[in-house]
Nucleic acid binder design. Structure first.
Length: 308
DNA sequence: TTCCAGGGGTAGA
DNA sequence: TCTACCCATGGA
């Protein structure tokens, strides 16, 4: 979508290689994140964009599109070498370009309800540029309907996010420091309700150096250690921790929420009331791929999309 | 109006 | 480790 800028745009296009198989659209639609600010999906153009604040304090618009078997990242500004490196690093993280699903596909091929995963390159879950953003977003999915999550995240971005210089209607995801300096009453007024003190404690804890969310991105750390660390965060319990582990590329635990319970109950237990135990009984055999099996299971039995 | 949502924290057993 | 209870807000 063309926008008016005061000066002639100096577009820069970065093309990033992904480990095959890779499917841009599959990553974008892997879960609901593309519907949350500052992400914006343009279905007609098949592009995903977001405002990103760089370490240099510069706020830029990033536009992502499919490029062959990889990813193209377009910016309207001329980046310094350092900024360009940051954009490449963050983009690779957000789209999990390096992720390797070879072993998962080998097993999925033997299960008719998962055999579509290889062809559609299912597995990658769209991530935010920082764990801070993903932790906040998962926190905003707790005990609330999806439309409410969209509203809360949008309110946080609009209220605390840094605006794009040439288009202040679009903003980056707020820094922890900005939230940390706000008040609980302000957050409650945005509609966060009882989540307000959790978010405030998280933001202030990060600012004080009490929590190091970036350390969760370390692939060499054991999953259970990360899980303990996640659950220790304010407002993050078993469901949120398991969901965040999947975002981190660790699929040993299923984020059991009311949606998971109703889906699994409907398809495996004839609609009768179940709990976490029954969900794990269904997918337990998938071991380190439990969350992938649950998430990309073809519940309709059509060999098509299982997620919206 | 009532119920409950892509749950978490806490107290008490 | 498990259960009961409370939590704010908005949608259905």
């Amino acid at each position: 979508m063309p926008r008016d800028y005061n000066r002639a745009p100096e577009f820069m296009i970065l093309t990033l290689v992904a480990r095959p198989p890779f499917n841009f659209r599959s990553v974008v639609h892997s879960h609901g994140w593309y519907q949350l600010a500052p992400w914006e999906w343009d279905d007609a153009a098949q592009t995903l964009s977001r405002v990103e604040r760089l370490a240099s304090e510069r706020v830029v618009l990033l536009l992502f599109r499919a490029a062959g078997d990889g990813l193209a990242v377009e910016t309207q500004d001329r980046l310094t070498l350092r900024e360009r490196g940051e954009v490449e690093r963050k983009s690779a993280w957000m789209f999990a370009l390096e992720a390797d699903f070879t072993a998962f596909y080998a097993r999925a091929d033997t299960e008719p309800r998962l055999a579509h995963c290889r062809a559609k390159a299912y597995g990658r879950l769209l991530r935010s540029s920082t764990m801070w953003e993903d932790v906040v977003k998962v926190m905003m999915t707790t005990n609330i309907q999806w439309s409410g999550t969209q509203r809360l995240v949008s309110a946080l971005v609009q209220r605390f996010g840094e605006p794009l210089p040439n288009d202040p209607s679009r903003r980056a995801f707020p820094k922890p420091e900005t939230i940390a300096h706000s008040r609980e009453a302000t957050l409650r007024k945005l509609g966060l309700g009882y989540r307000a003190p959790y978010l405030l404690k998280l933001a202030r804890g990060i600012t004080a150096g009490e929590y190091d969310l970036a350390a969760l991105m370390d692939p060499s750390r054991p999953t259970d250690e990360l899980r303990r660390e996640l659950i220790a965060l304010p407002g993050i319990g078993p469901y949120a921790a398991n969901t965040l582990l999947a975002i981190l590329g660790r699929y040993d635990y299923i984020g059991v929420d009311t949606e998971a319970i109703s889906t699994v109950s409907r398809h495996f237990y004839d609609g009768r009331p179940i709990g976490e135990k029954e969900i794990n009984a269904v997918f337990g055999a998938w071991g380190e791929y439990k969350a992938l099996a649950y998430w990309f299971w073809d519940y309709a039995g059509m060999g098509g999309d299982s997620n919206g």
